[in-house]
Write a protein that binds this DNA or RNA. Structure first.
Lengths: 144, 144
DNA sequence: ATTAATACTAATAATCATTATCATATACAC
DNA sequence: GTGTATATGATAATGATTATTAGTATTAAT
């Protein structure tokens, strides 16, 4: 398992029970994906058939509070979770309004904006950026 | 009332009943604020004591779909609504992690990022940017 | 080794935000 | 005036999430 993750677990005195490990493994198995709690539950049940939805919710919430996971909402009124980036910089998301796929990108050109905010007295510690539009595949299909 | 809003209502054949007008007036009275559905209900009840929460939800949803309102989620697991900007550019938000206040700012330096995405085949039609940190007032208080 | 304290779990109840349903009211077309 | 369409408020229902509880497991103290 990722060394940084192990460190964070230790830092927070978070005992990794079998159930919690199953949840974390699901997230590690799905790098780059954004899973809802229900999706995590279904995959975790393959590793531990008796795991309960409440345990999954508690675990996801806790891992997010430790910055091991990142929690956000795209569409549909429920939260989605993904593994946090290993450096503390977060990537951004592009949501395709046609197929619903969520793409990620790394470029971070927000420094200018953050500088302006800090010039106005804000201290910025995090940000969240989402683009909405159409992915190359859907644009291709729409041309036909 | 705002001319652009009236146009959009007409375009969408959206009849402005007294109840819907009360909801819209609440939003107009609260420019720059981000109200939850419950907050809108409480203020709308001052204009129309009998208005129901279901009507408020239906109206907020409809006005958001017409780009008269903007719907987003900050914290707390419920949606908040605000009047959309009159040009189609949306402003951005800064959420203070201490007092919870939501600030707005206008600067739009995302063109470079959007250009890069479009160079990769995406068609971008909207974006959402939120910064999290501490506002000048809370930073002041934390220094004492 | 035993006991007490603490932590964790699954099941399920409860909560909350939101939406669906339904009966009634209002508006509109003819 | 009548029939149809739309809107409303109340409330039930839904879905996502959290709280509660009893039982179990782990850890700490002795």
């Amino acid at each position: 398992m990722d060394k940084k993750i192990t460190e964070k677990l230790k830092e927070n005195n978070y005992k990794l029970t079998e159930q919690r490990e199953a949840v974390l493994e699901v997230m590690l198995d799905n790098r780059g994906k954004h899973l809802s709690a229900e999706e995590v539950l279904q995959e975790a049940k393959q590793k531990m058939p008796n795991i309960g939805i409440a345990t999954v919710y508690r675990t996801l919430e806790k891992l997010a509070s430790m910055d091991i996971l990142y929690k956000t909402m795209f569409e549909g009124g429920k939260f989605r979770y993904e593994l946090s980036d290993e450096d503390t910089h977060q990537h951004h998301h592009i949501v395709c309004l046609k197929c619903g796929h969520i793409y990620e990108f790394e470029e971070d050109l927000l420094n200018e904006l953050e500088s302006r905010l800090e010039a106005r007295g804000f201290e910025i510690v995090d940000h969240e950026l989402k683009f909405y539009g159409y992915c190359p595949e859907c644009r291709e299909k729409m041309r036909k």
